[in-house]
Design a protein around this nucleic acid. Structure first.
Lengths: 253, 253
DNA sequence: CGTGCTTTTGAAAATCATCAAGTATAGTGG
DNA sequence: CCACTATACTTGATGATTTTCAAAAGCACG
């Protein structure tokens, strides 16, 4: 029997700590996650407080302003983090994938909302227990601090994009960033092939991430297609035919 | 004799560790800084590796891409952090003031450039020594982690601004954010008075922070002035006559 | 093979940027 | 002390990119 708890279709009920054996035992996301780098003891303690949980696509996980009682680590699928203005304008802060962590704001409230883009599996930690571990394991805090600094750098990159890049530069940046880095030791031959990328999110979500409208994003895609820089196989599967050129555009050259 | 070392007018020579007695002894910025919250021993060890340093206005402190050998804590004055595109477009990531810390990127290179806006005093830590302390003092790491999370939240706010707010909303947000929070126990009467704010940075720098042009920023100032929302006493001293209204505009209502 | 959705494309409108003067301010030297 | 210069800021006119509004084209699903 699985330890993964199916989320109800209704929004954002806090995940109940339905505990059985540790879901970590067969977890394949540990390499990509903060937990993977931990020593035996700290890892065991994390495993003792974790719960698995699954969400269908397009479901709210947490909302901006809620009390931050839970922390989440994404095991599979894509989550969007976003903030909104009172009149409904949306800015997507980032997309989370396997190994990404969320839910440790400086104060007790979530600062951003989180919603699934695809079906998503996460592991969930109760904040109280997690905070206790954080005080006991320097390795854990060290790892999370490092991730936080990465997050700051990513945010700085995105501020540059939002403040100063043109629509085409933004879209090119987005496409290029979604190319999966080949693992070390991967076949060199593949490096020269035009890579494929998946776009699980809608054009609207890409727009909300890039500070544009859906239409402007779509036009950029079309232009890149006509220029032979990309090829589309359905709206959510893209081949980057001229990665070099796209990288130049993305860099603002 | 002061332990503060005057920076040369030439750019960015790494500060030499000219050591004498600890500059922390008479430092008045500790309440505002990460170091203030530290226990005796950790504080003493920090004091043992710190050097004071001053920069004149408009001088480069560090440049994006340089090896991050030094960490800085701002004691007084204003510093701007920014990133640039190859063709010269600039995005200012933030302004640092008293108590703000910089120089701990995830990798070994600075991710942003830093330049003084006003004359600035900082204290400087060599990265090697600082990293060692970081491994030894959990309190220090804890404090910096908390600051990093604050930085993430600030970045998220700014992404919302850059991606989704109008020019006027951006300028209003900027003005409102510069109001100094009254300390607890401050006279309540003052809360209702229209507050004054300082703008040590140029219109161009405000524009580069808000993802606008100088002209657009200037027009927003003029419009607010004609609407009676602000009053200008010289370009760098502003009174927020209708803080409530400015807050509404800033929030995007 | 409709039906409803997302995406694409087109035309018009708006915001903001660019280009260009003009004004104020501070600093300098006579 | 005052004129002069340099600089920053403001204001105006024009233009371009992007948004908005609108409709058509794909696509998935029953």
């Amino acid at each position: 029997m699985s330890t993964i708890v199916q989320a109800s279709n209704q929004a954002a009920t806090p995940p109940r700590p339905t505990r059985t054996a540790s879901p970590c035992d067969h977890c394949t996301s540990q390499d990509a996650s903060f937990c993977g780098a931990l020593e035996g003891q700290a890892h065991g303690r994390l495993a003792a407080i974790v719960t698995g949980r699954s969400y269908p696509a397009r479901q709210t996980i947490v909302q901006e302003g809620e009390s931050a009682e839970w922390l989440f680590n994404v095991l599979s699928g894509t989550v969007k983090l976003f903030r909104t203005l009172p009149d409904g304008r949306v800015q997507i802060i980032g997309f989370l994938g396997e190994g990404d962590f969320m839910g440790l704001p400086p104060a007790g409230l979530y600062e951003v909302s989180a919603e699934t883009v695809t079906p998503v599996d996460v592991c969930v930690f109760p904040k109280r227990s997690f905070d206790r571990l954080l005080g006991e394991s320097q390795a854990l805090e060290h790892r999370l601090f490092a991730m936080s600094r990465d997050e700051v750098v990513a945010a700085q990159n995105h501020m540059l994009l939002l403040g100063r890049k043109t629509a085409q530069e933004r879209v090119a940046t987005f496409l290029v960033a979604r190319v999966k880095q080949p693992r070390c030791g991967r076949s060199v031959a593949l490096l020269d092939t035009a890579p494929w990328i998946d776009l699980p999110m809608s054009r609207m979500e890409i727009a909300d991430y890039l500070g544009l409208t859906m239409e402007t994003v779509s036009r950029a895609f079309s232009k890149f297609k006509h220029q032979g820089l990309i090829a589309l196989d359905g709206p959510d599967r893209v081949q980057l035919m001229r990665l070099d050129r796209l990288r130049e555009i993305a860099a603002g050259a």
